[in-house]
Amino acid sequence: MKNVLFVCSQNRLRSPTAEQVFSKRHDIEVASAGTNHDADTPLSHELVAWADIIFVMEKTHRSKLQKKFKASLKAAKVICLDIPDDYEFMDPELIALLKARVRVIWTETSRRPSA
């Protein structure tokens, strides 16, 4: 079973939506966090070390992750979904975009089905 972490800035809209959408899968464990210090669930060394795959919403999240948590990244694969902060929590458009982007990446990298 893979541990999948979704990361955005505040952990209020995009990454919690992704966590909820993909938590229904039985072949992965999911969590979400934010890069900002005042995020609902701030990104931590423990979460980064736990993750096998880390999906960040924007390139700035990847940069912050790699700069601040380099020691904890181990062999985790970090993938940018390029999803801007334009959506509300559980927005149907956001859900469709997350499923489409993760499906393409999941298929390319692990040949496993996605949500």
Rank of each mutant, 00 (worst) to 15 (best):
A18K: 05
A115H: 13
S72R: 06
D27F: 03
K2N: 04
T60R: 09
M57I: 03
I83F: 01
M1G: 04
P84A: 13
T41H: 12
R101H: 15
V48P: 04
N36E: 14
E88V: 09
V104T: 15
K74T: 02
D85T: 04
C8V: 01
E58R: 05
L73R: 08
V21Q: 13
F69C: 09
L98Y: 03
A39N: 04
C80K: 00
A96T: 07
C8N: 01
H45E: 03
D82A: 10
L65I: 09
V4N: 00
Y87P: 04
S63E: 15
H37P: 12
K74I: 00
I79V: 12
E58G: 08
Q10Y: 12
I28R: 02
R12E: 15
V7F: 02
N11L: 00
S9M: 13
H26K: 04
T17D: 15
R14F: 08
F6Y: 02
N3K: 12
T107W: 11
T35P: 06
A100G: 08
A75E: 14
W106I: 06
D86R: 00
P42G: 14
I83K: 11
L73V: 02
K70T: 11
W50C: 02
K59S: 08
I79E: 13
S23A: 09
A33K: 00
N11I: 01
I95A: 13
E58T: 08
S9K: 12
N36F: 11
K24F: 00
D91R: 04
F22M: 07
